[in-house]
């Protein structure tokens, strides 16, 4: 399916931030904003909800901790208890280091996999981008266009009024 977008190109993050607020206030739905670095405050301006990743991180960590404790207690306490100088089989203080390491291991890798999955990041040979300068020095605001021909010129005016240095049209093919 091919979709058309109006791309407002901005030179500065603060100009972009205000433009995002004004464009949304004008009742235009912003498809996405692409920037070379994280623009602080854009989440609120775009109405992006706070990420729930920290909650996921907590559960990954707890999974790691539970797994590590179960593994050590089961292996040394029940499956193959070894008598080492008459010391207790389930020696919890000695299990702390591995429990800690596995907590971190699960948190980190669980987080990374979740991040890649929900953001749709995976190795691919071709990456269609709106504007190649968005990873260099430009801030790109993409607005999806419908079929009306007058919409683009109206958007051009709106974006220009809010500090866009140029406004382009781009067709993107999405699956």
């Amino acid at each position: 399916m091919t979709k058309r977008y109006a791309l407002g190109i901005f030179e500065d993050e603060d100009v972009l931030l205000h433009a995002v607020e004004n464009v949304r206030a004008a009742g235009v739905k912003i498809h996405d904003v692409f920037s070379p670095y994280p623009v602080h405050g854009i989440d609120d301006a775009l109405g992006i909800e706070r990420s729930r990743l920290p909650i996921a991180a907590f559960f990954f960590g707890m999974t790691g901790l539970a797994f590590a404790l179960w593994m050590q207690i089961y292996m040394l306490g029940f499956d193959w208890p070894m008598n080492i100088g008459g010391k207790p089989h389930i020696a919890l203080p000695a299990f702390i280091p591995v429990a800690f390491e596995l907590t971190v291991f699960f948190t980190c890798h669980g987080m990374a996999l979740t991040f890649f999955t929900i953001t749709g990041l995976y190795p691919r040979p071709k990456v269609p981008v709106m504007d190649v300068r968005a990873t260099d020095d430009k801030f790109v605001m993409a607005i999806e266009l419908d079929e009306t021909s007058s919409q683009f010129s109206r958007l051009t005016q709106l974006l220009r009024d809010n500090g866009a240095s140029e406004v382009n049209q781009k067709e993107m093919t999405t699956k």
């Binding site: 670095y37 854009i42 990041l121 990456v127 990873t135």
Partner: peptide
């Protein structure tokens, strides 16, 4: 990994 720099991704 197909990074585009979108606001949500950042």
């Amino acid at each position: 990994f197909g990074w585009k720099g979108s606001a949500k991704a950042w």
